[in-house]
């Protein structure tokens, strides 16, 4: 009953023009697994919906020498089927695979998961931990920005009017670099993360951590890069003491809220637990590659 219109542009330029036109709300449609829920509930009342999926490059995964390029609207199921990506970044592909059901996997994308700007988005901590960037195009051209620069708060992004995310660039792992992502949900499937944690480490001689990134989800308005947690790892083996420092750092970095999905106290505790567990997996993987 609104004056909603739907367009499915076949070029980036056409999409940018459509997104930039008019004064009303315009929404990019990738997998639609968040947008359609918002449309139906009346939480989002856009004037224009721009379907991204017919733009060349928006769906698909390609590989260059130093990076993977993932189209922003590539459905999760396609990401999980990409063998080289799964081998390179099991943490990322497992995180993507955790988003919703198999049906959701048929549609949900990295671009949508990021731009929906939920603090609990599963794929976001893992791609940030891998130091991925995204390519943004808009009326003023093209820019490449770190993924962590996109979301500014719940439901809020730094994208300007007319901008869309074209693709994600994920650097390939160095030797002995690996990642892991874990989340906690009350059931075994179908829930939104109560806490999520990605750990990405690079090991040096004798398994000592040389470089690390630890990113928490659902414990703050956006995914949080926990520098102190990375510092707890760098220069150390993953022994009990290191794990204890990591746990404490993750807890300290958690500034969650109490809502229907979890309490402040619970989220803080579990953030520490998941950081330890994800680190154990990442270290093990890094040691084996």
């Amino acid at each position: 009953m609104s004056g909603l219109s739907f367009i499915a542009p076949k070029t980036v330029e056409e999409a940018v023009r459509a997104l930039a036109a008019g004064d009303g709300l315009t929404k990019c449609l990738a997998g639609g697994t968040d947008l359609l829920v918002q449309l139906r509930s009346g939480r989002a009342r856009p004037e224009v919906i721009v379907d991204m999926k017919r733009i060349p490059g928006l769906i698909g995964i390609s590989e260059r020498e130093d990076r993977f390029i993932i189209g922003a609207a590539t459905p999760g199921a396609m990401i999980s089927e990409c063998g080289p990506l799964c081998r390179a970044w099991p943490g990322i592909t497992e995180a993507v695979d955790l988003i919703g059901s198999q049906q959701i996997q048929g549609r949900a994308s990295l671009g949508g998961n990021l731009c929906n700007a939920s603090p609990a988005a599963d794929s976001v901590p893992a791609v940030i931990a891998a130091r991925a960037t995204c390519v943004v195009v808009g009326p003023e051209g093209r820019r490449e920005v770190p993924v962590e620069a996109i979301v500014t708060g719940p439901g809020q992004t730094s994208l300007r009017k007319g901008e869309l995310i074209l693709e994600f660039h994920v650097p390939k792992p160095r030797p002995h670099q690996a990642d892991a992502y874990l989340r906690f949900i009350p059931r075994t499937e179908m829930d939104i993360a109560v806490v999520g944690c990605a750990v990405n480490v690079t090991l040096g001689d004798k398994g000592v951590c040389r470089d690390a990134r630890v990113v928490l989800g659902a414990v703050a308005p956006t995914a949080v890069i926990v520098t102190e947690a990375a510092e707890a790892l760098v220069g150390h083996w993953l022994d009990e003491e290191t794990l204890g420092r990591l746990d404490a750092a993750a807890r300290r970095a958690s500034k969650p809220i109490t809502d229907k999905r979890g309490t402040i106290e619970y989220r803080i505790k579990v953030a520490g637990v998941l950081a330890r567990r994800a680190a154990a997996i990442a270290f093990k993987r890094a040691g084996e590659c």
Binding site: F6, G32, T33, L36, P75, Q102, Q103, I104, Q105, R107
Partner: peptide
């Protein structure tokens, strides 16, 4: 849809 299962409630008819 094109070989993948989806929730038809989460896809627009126009798509």
């Amino acid at each position: 849809v094109d070989g993948r299962i989806v929730c038809s409630c989460l896809m627009l008819g126009a798509e």
